[in-house]
Amino acid sequence: MSTEAAQTHLEDALRLVQEALAAAGSGEWERVSELDVRCREVSKAMGDELQGYDPRPLLPGLVRLRERHRHLLALAEGHRDELARASRESRRGRQGARAYEDNT
Rank of each mutant, 00 (worst) to 15 (best):
1 M>F: 14
2 S>T: 09
3 T>H: 08
3 T>F: 08
6 A>K: 00
6 A>S: 00
14 L>T: 02
14 L>K: 04
18 Q>G: 06
18 Q>D: 15
18 Q>W: 01
19 E>N: 10
20 A>R: 00
21 L>R: 00
23 A>V: 02
24 A>Q: 02
26 S>V: 04
27 G>D: 14
29 W>H: 01
29 W>Q: 01
35 L>F: 06
35 L>H: 01
36 D>S: 04
37 V>L: 10
38 R>F: 12
39 C>D: 10
41 E>L: 12
41 E>H: 05
41 E>S: 01
44 K>V: 15
45 A>I: 08
45 A>R: 10
47 G>H: 07
47 G>P: 04
48 D>C: 07
49 E>C: 10
50 L>P: 01
52 G>N: 07
52 G>T: 03
53 Y>M: 06
54 D>V: 04
55 P>R: 01
57 P>M: 03
58 L>W: 05
63 V>Q: 06
66 R>C: 10
69 H>L: 13
72 L>C: 02
76 A>H: 09
77 E>K: 02
78 G>P: 00
78 G>K: 03
78 G>H: 11
79 H>C: 05
82 E>A: 13
82 E>G: 09
82 E>V: 14
83 L>R: 11
84 A>P: 04
85 R>L: 14
87 S>Q: 15
87 S>R: 14
92 R>P: 12
92 R>H: 12
94 R>C: 07
96 G>N: 06
97 A>W: 06
99 A>K: 13
103 N>T: 06
